[in-house]
Amino acid sequence: MMLAMGESGLRKVYPVLESLAALIAGIIGGFIVSAVLGYDPFASISLILLSGFGNIEYLLSISVPLTLSALAFIVPLRAGLFNIGVEGQAYVGALAAVYVSSLTGFPLPIILAPLAGALIGFLIGVLRVYRGVNEVVSSIMLNWTLFYTVSFTISRYLRDPVIVHQSVRVDRMLSALEALLIALAITIAVHTILYRTTLGYYIRVMGSSPEALKYSGSSESRVTLTAMSLGGVLGGLAGALQVYTVSGFIDVTMSAVFGIGFMGIAAGLIGRATAVGALPASILISALIIGGHKLELVLGAPPELADVMIGVMMLALSAPYALRLLSSKVLG
């Protein structure tokens, strides 16, 4: 009995241990690559970590939109759907936030932007349910369509009269604390939806087995549409918060929002596809990115060193799964 309890306790902390191991693997990966590139590995890694976590306020304001992006990826993932469209949903959310902000002030832009993202998520869901289009394919195409549409809209209709390569600024910026509170509230909401509501229950059943979902009395189409729309809501909010806490505007090359969706996938996976894991994972990734930029300034080393560390962490996290899969194949 003691052993059984110990085992079950171990299985609870197991995911946390795996994440820590992945973190260490990432640091070792960064260590090796910086040594190979001819930089002092101790200096570069400590610089990345120290400067990454050096300015907590800045770190948090970068982490919050990323957290939302990670959540936008996670919710559909729990239903077995890959929301690669977070990127496009964030573009649209950012654009909606800038536009609404030019008409009326905070908080309405933050409230309406998710609706724009939801439309995109819903569209991807409709294409999958009624036309059998794989959500990954339609998402990738939509991401680029939306990239140019938003870029065009900014330069044509929402251009700043003085600085012509960017949009008008939003009415105000959110402080890191405000942003953090929003992220915490949304995290709790997503966790509650996933674990305490029938919707979340059906999302998770579908992720486990679509046949079981049908058997349990729900339908795959309904859950797909809802999960993708919900992902879109969160993706749209990610874009709006990026504008409201980080950039303040969108430039015509889209660099203010570009990549947030893709980085959200990394954060979602490093957070073990859980709502509560999204924020810590996003803080970690943001710290690495900030540290990577600092590294370039101080040592002249490529900032991609941070990307290497993120990549190694994701590989390390998928390793236990790959091992399980391999062993079951060999045994089966």
Partner: peptide
């Protein structure tokens, strides 16, 4: 007949 239909194994 199939547990893949009647159960959500991951849950």
């Amino acid at each position: 007949e199939s547990k893949l239909v009647g159960l959500a194994l991951e849950m």
